[in-house]
Structure formats: C-alpha cells, structure tokens
C-alpha cells in the first residue's frame, strides 16, 4: 500500500459522504454547463437542474401497459449507482475512496455494466421507442467500448500500474496528455458516448421520441438523468486524473486544481459536443472499428515503446 485511501485519511463516514457529494456536485456542474450552452446562460442556470429535479419528485408517476416493472426499476436505479460507484477509484483529493491494484478495471467495469442498465431502461416500459433506444445503446457500445478500454490501458501502461493514484504520481514530470493525446480525446468522447449525451444521444434520440427515456417519469427519470450527468462528471474527473496530472499545479491546493481541471474538461466537452448533430450508431460503429481501434492501438504502441526506452521511469 503506497498511500492512504480517503477512508483511512478522513474516517469512513466523511469519506463516503464526501465522494458521493462530489459526484452529485459534478453532475450538477455538468447539467448546468450543458444548459448554459444549449439554452444560454443566466443566473438561474445553476438552479435550473435542481428545480427540474424537484419537479420530478412531485410529478405523478406514469406506467405503461404490461411493463416489466422489476427490471425497469432496476435499470433506472442502476444508472446513478454505477455512476457514483465509478467515482470510488477517482482520486478527488489526491486519494481515492477505494484503492486496489486494478482501479482502472473497476472504472471500466462500472461503465460496462451500464450496457445492461440502459438496455433494461429501454426494455422495461414495453414501448417501441424505448426498446429501439435500448438496442441502439448496445450498438453504440460496440463502437466506443474498445477504443475506451485501449485509452484506459494506455494510461496504465505508461504508469506501469492500474492504480489511479499511481497513474497520477507517474505524471509528476509530464502530463500524460502530451504523449497520449489520442487516448485522451478518445476517452472523453467515449464518456459522452456511455452517458449517451450530446453527439451520442442516439439511444435517447429525438428521432425516436426520447428513446430509452421516453416513458420515464418522476423519480425514475430523475435517477436516469442524474446518473448520466454524474457519469459525465466522473469521467471528466477520471480524465483529469489519468491524462491531466490529477491535482498537480502551482500555488493552489491540490483538490482545487483537480476540480478546476475537471471543470475545464466538462466545459470543453459540452462546448464541443453541442456544436455537432447526433451521430447515428449505424455509422459510428464503422468509424469505431476502422478508425478509432487502430488509432488507439497505435497510441498504445507508441507509449509501449516509450516505456521500453524508460521515458516514463
């Protein structure tokens, strides 16, 4: 054990509460920035997602004809659960809540389980648009999953460890984004894809009347929307840790730097992501396999050669 975990440093309860709170705040930041870019920013922009969330709590729930209630509810609850759990291995204050020799695999696993969760959200209501959306998410997953995994592995490869705190420590000399720009961009784009947001909204696309989200109401919708926003925020935080040196930076304390960088990643992602239309999954799959997989592999090869030459040592 090279370092303390958050739980050891702060005590169990404050650490757990802290990480969940950071996740919710990140989700709120994502929702507010997204709203500011799409609708235009005003003073009420930050409050708007909160207001929408509160309204969903008061809303009468709807249920469709012969839905698969159990699986539907399970899918809805799984989306935010997975999003928050993925934050357990993100080093927010220089430490993670949970530190293992396979942190990157954990992050990957949380995102991979999302395949099942989103498909269940689409399957549950017994509605054609939702079902189509659920299957679209799987098709989209086939496009982004491998490039995302290669991007994660590339960061672990350079650090010689799959522990996120080790990856952050390995960047003391040089941020990984310098030697692995492709992996960084692919990772952030994949984050948008697994949160099915922006250009990757197709599973919840307006062309299928909202897709997986089309029959959601009340708390169910709140949970799914919340989960997507938290996942985007968590992925931005993870990108900061893996490629942008984590909490490294002059003058300001580490956690402040970390949050500033995460905020910058979120802003850049939303700003770029909202400038393009939705990409149809039946076309992204081809790009994913024929362009992104070779590119990320080439990136991994370059990094592997650098590792052999002792560049990161």
């Amino acid at each position: 054990m090279p370092e303390q975990t958050l739980a050891e440093a702060w005590g169990l309860a404050p650490a757990v509460l802290g990480v969940v709170a950071v996740g919710l705040i990140l989700g709120l930041v994502v929702a507010a920035v997204d709203r500011a870019v799409v609708v235009g920013g005003t003073v009420g922009t930050v409050a708007a997602p909160l207001r929408d969330g509160a309204r969903l709590l008061f809303e009468q729930r709807r249920t469709t004809l012969a839905p698969d209630r159990l699986l539907w509810r399970l899918g809805c609850a799984a989306v935010p659960t997975l999003a928050l759990l993925s934050l357990a291995v993100v080093p927010v204050g220089g430490r993670t809540l949970w530190s293992t020799s396979a942190d990157l695999v954990w992050f990957n696993a949380m995102e991979a389980l999302l395949w099942a969760a989103v498909w269940l959200v689409g399957w549950g209501p017994n509605a054609v648009h939702a079902l189509t959306g659920g299957y679209r998410f799987l098709a989209q997953g086939l496009a982004y999953e491998l490039p995302l995994m290669f991007a994660l592995i590339t960061a672990g490869l350079a650090a010689g460890s799959l522990r996120t705190t080790d990856v952050v420590t390995a960047q003391e000399g040089l941020w990984f984004v310098v030697t692995m720009p492709v992996a960084f961009v692919v990772f952030v784009a994949s984050a948008a894809a697994f949160a099915f947001w922006g250009p990757f909204t197709a599973p919840a696309g307006p062309d299928i009347a909202g897709g997986v989200t089309s029959e959601l109401s009340g708390v169910d919708r709140l949970l799914v929307d919340l989960g997507r926003a938290v996942f985007l925020g968590a992925a931005a935080a993870m990108a900061t840790a893996l490629f942008l040196g984590g909490d490294a930076g002059p003058w300001l304390p580490g956690p402040v730097w970390f949050l500033l960088k995460t905020f910058a990643v979120v802003t850049a992602l939303v700003w770029v992501g909202r400038r393009v239309p939705v990409l149809r999954p039946d076309r992204t799959v081809e790009i994913g396999w024929m362009v992104l997989v070779p590119m990320t592999l080439l990136q991994a090869l370059v990094v592997a050669v650098l590792v052999l030459n002792g560049f990161y040592a």
Partner: peptide, 12 residues
C-alpha cells in the same frame, strides 16, 4: 429538421 437530427443549438 435540426430537431430530428438532434442538433439543439443550431435549431435554437
């Protein structure tokens, strides 16, 4: 059309 194409900022 831009609504259907999922491009909210351009539609706006």
């Amino acid at each position: 059309f831009l609504d259907v194409a999922g491009w909210p900022t351009a539609a706006r």
